[in-house]
Amino acid sequence: MLRTTVALTLLIAAVLFIQGCAGLVVAGGAAAGAVAASDSRPTQVMMDDKIIEMAATDKIYSDRELQTRVHINVNSYNYVVLLTGEALSQDLKNKAVDIVRHLKKVRRVHNEIRVADLTSFESRAKDSWISSKIKTNMFSTKDFDATKVEVITENRTVYMMGIVTEEQGAKAAEIARQVEGVAKVIKLFEYFEPSNTPADAAPVQTTG
């Protein structure tokens, strides 16, 4: 049942995505098209990343041992997967990571899962607020393209993914640090030189 639901969700998402890219006049279509046009990834890579996220989430929460004993978020950007959240034991954490590492097209996994009690709804709501606030501030920052940065917050730690220049990455982190409630910022960007293209990006992880 879960796999059927995920497949249906994926199909709907794909249709909406294509509609947005085509510029059809639908609710949110213009915004979706603008974001797709600005994203550093080719369209096929964007679609593949969404498929990876859905497949990983499905496999993790379809596993009887994991489904009620972990809280794991899956984010994929340019085939690099970030796993955040909590697992009640090291064995459960390892199992979830192993599932994702063996998914088709995944080239790297950033394992940021903590062995700890699962976070509360209140904590997750606060994390969502932090991510939304950071993105809002990015969009209101002059000469900064917020569409090139993905923001994920877990337990007040902010993770940033994207294909950017070092200057863009530093600016994104600076914006994030200024938001109330942020405890730490971890940059998982792939950097490229301004004279090159995003295809030349090299992965870098820094904490600040």
Rank of each mutant, 00 (worst) to 15 (best):
L66Y: 06
Y79R: 15
R108H: 11
L11Q: 10
E65M: 08
K50H: 08
T119H: 08
A27P: 09
S76E: 02
Q44I: 15
K59C: 05
L103H: 05
L10R: 12
V26F: 10
Q90M: 08
G85R: 01
M47W: 11
V70I: 13
M47I: 15
A34V: 09
V81C: 05
V115L: 06
L88S: 11
E65K: 11
L83H: 00
A87D: 00
I130P: 00
V15Y: 06
A116G: 13
L10T: 10
L16N: 09
E65S: 11
G85Q: 03
K95P: 05
K95G: 07
K105S: 13
L16E: 08
Y79H: 09
G85K: 01
A37R: 15
T68P: 05
E112L: 01
G29I: 07
Q67G: 06
A31P: 05
V25R: 09
I99C: 08
P42H: 04
T136L: 07
K95V: 06
A125C: 07
Q19E: 15
L103N: 05
L11R: 09
A56V: 12
V26W: 13
A37K: 15
H71C: 04
A37G: 12
H71M: 07
A14Q: 12
I51N: 03
P42G: 11
Q90R: 12
I134G: 00
E122K: 09
Y77M: 04
D39Q: 14
A96M: 02
F139L: 12
I113G: 03
Q19K: 11
D39E: 12
S128I: 01
D49F: 06
A22M: 14
S132A: 14
K133A: 09
A36L: 09
T84Q: 00
V97C: 04
D49W: 05
D49V: 03
